[in-house]
Design a protein around this nucleic acid. Structure first.
Lengths: 335, 335
DNA sequence: CTGAAAGCGCTTACAG
DNA sequence: CTGAAAGCGCTTACAG
């Protein structure tokens, strides 16, 4: 859009009676500027209400003093799943006291060209990517541009040379299954996350392994996609298929809450008839009746780790990757 | 951070055997370029993986092809209050098919200098500001820079020459109070939003007016700040002060839900002992037991209106402001 | 249809 | 301590 004519360094310099170079130096707090020059420049800045044009600065400095938090998911999902809320809040809060501006960019995997354009355009110094589906190719952009970046959650495609932090999803799934097995449940199902995401696959794998090791059948699997609706739907399908189900591990709290409601709606008592274990330990897990037994997802730890990794990358320092955070079961009353 | 050497227009031009001007023209789909030139440039672009540097482009064009959604609130509040979630999701979705990149910038009112810097730096063409407290001075930056902008929610300070869209908060408060009065409640309190926000003041004013007109005492007022905790705390204070309270209008659903839980925790039956009316009609309102009677906040309407207004502003067209959207009571079982 | 040239607003060696 | 000058990567009249 058309620019209103804003004061420029040139204007400041003219008013202060110095060169642009000197004016620029005081703007950037360069110590080797004489006191009188400095003060007259500062006065001019104040009078004119001058602010540096960041595009010009970024262009010459080749840096933007900002980082992007990228979520390749539809906007409503981002704002609807408490998992994202926690991660994003933690990331932005961790960076709140640093001078870098944090910008959130979202968008469906399908139309990531806007995000790509942004990432490639020099508008930002680095990126933290949260969530990653198989068909999302932002990592290629990252690879190509060598833009410093870190993933929260292992990229589905495997090691692409971009560091990441993750929770031990497989161990988490196993934890849930083991809890159900050892509490005497006989017919244990699972409602999975999307199978085009590492988290979806790994949580399922952990559950599967434990059931097999316990000599139980591990075929009661219903796929869902981490959305609340898909959780309720999957619960209903499972009930149809196996009316004798007496326990279910649901791969996210958001889905677990709706699965639990669905069970109740259909007249099953939780946990007497059917035990439910979720994953994440979002705030909502404490609010259901019965309160939701779940697997801790250390979102704050992942967020701060991701930020630290990115900061190191920006300083051209090495980072250890991957960082896999541990988890544990949070026993409440639903299982 | 230091830029890896990315291919530049110069490189493309050299490889294609044309001038930078011509190369630039094909990048920008300028029709008056010969076919052979165009094709060789396109080939060079593909081979080099060239992407335009947006800072350079923005610098010369004086536009950024992006708009900022600014929320001058602490990050955890933004991600925690479903009101923000709905508004932000609606805004970003409305803009999803346009070529402009939408960036979300948050930050406590106290430290808005990062946001200011961003807004003033030419990184963005316009802004939609959601939420506004008395001590937040972003509007001054907007005024000064003449950056096209629109507010969602009337600025506390009054008309500052920046267009805004709002819900009729006063009418909404009145609606709630009238519902309570006409259902025979005798001791009606209110838990307010922050009084340094227009929404907080207006909802209170509507409630107040109706009680006064009904000849009832309108002094049972407890201040809160739109956070869940503050709602529960206010509810407890109100109960201490007026054990005979039989109805309460709570200025947001987030607070209403926790007030309702607090009532139940303290042994009051809702709605028999105490009726509760919220404000917003967020998804959570349907999930409480009893389901929450509330006042509709037309967030999607506000969001799309704000986007349309901003788009017009960007085209240098006039906009009607303010736009005040109507509301209505959503009767459920809590009152 | 195409190119040489100027310019967007800044920063930063290089001299002095 | 300070300034003249070059340059960041692009776009766009202006000529031809």
């Amino acid at each position: 859009m058309p620019a209103k004519r804003l004061p420029t360094l040139e204007d400041v310099a003219a008013r202060a009676g110095v060169s642009r170079a000197t004016a620029s130096r005081v703007v950037n707090a360069d110590p080797r500027v004489g006191r009188v020059a400095r003060e007259s420049v500062q006065a001019a800045i104040a009078q004119l209400g001058y602010r540096p044009n960041r595009n010009a600065r970024s262009l010459v400095r080749q840096e933007a003093d900002s980082i992007a938090v990228v979520v390749p998911e539809a906007e409503d999902r981002v704002f609807t799943d408490p998992f994202f809320a926690s991660v994003l809040a933690a990331i932005t809060q961790t960076l709140a006291d640093s001078p870098v501006q944090v910008l959130l960019a979202m968008g469906q995997p399908g139309k990531s060209h806007k995000i790509e354009r942004y990432l490639r355009g020099g508008y930002t110094d680095g990126a933290i990517v949260v969530s990653h589906h198989q068909d999302d190719h932002i990592w290629q952009v990252l690879q190509q541009t060598k833009l410093p970046a870190v993933y929260v959650g292992r990229p589905f495609v495997g090691d692409v040379g971009i560091p990441y932090v993750d929770v031990d999803n497989r161990a988490g799934g196993a934890l849930a299954a083991r809890h159900l097995v050892s509490s005497g449940r006989r017919r244990i199902g699972t409602i999975t996350g999307p199978q085009d995401m590492a988290a979806g696959q790994d949580r399922l794998a952990g559950w599967h392994q434990v059931l097999v090791e316990a000599g139980m059948s591990a075929d009661l699997i219903e796929n869902a996609d981490f959305s609340a609706d898909s959780g309720a739907l999957a619960m209903r399908r499972m009930l149809d298929r196996a009316p004798d189900v007496d326990a279910v591990f649901v791969a996210s709290d958001l889905m677990a809450v709706s699965a639990l409601h669905e069970l109740q709606r259909l007249g099953r008592h939780v946990p007497d008839d059917v035990a439910v274990v979720g994953f994440d330990d979002t705030p909502a897990a404490q609010l259901t009746r019965p309160a939701l037994t779940t697997v801790l997802n250390p979102v704050t730890g992942m967020a701060t780790t991701a930020v630290q990794m990115l900061l190191r990358l920006l300083e051209d320092e090495d980072v250890d990757s991957p960082v896999i955070l541990g988890t544990r079961l949070i026993p409440r009353t639903s299982a």
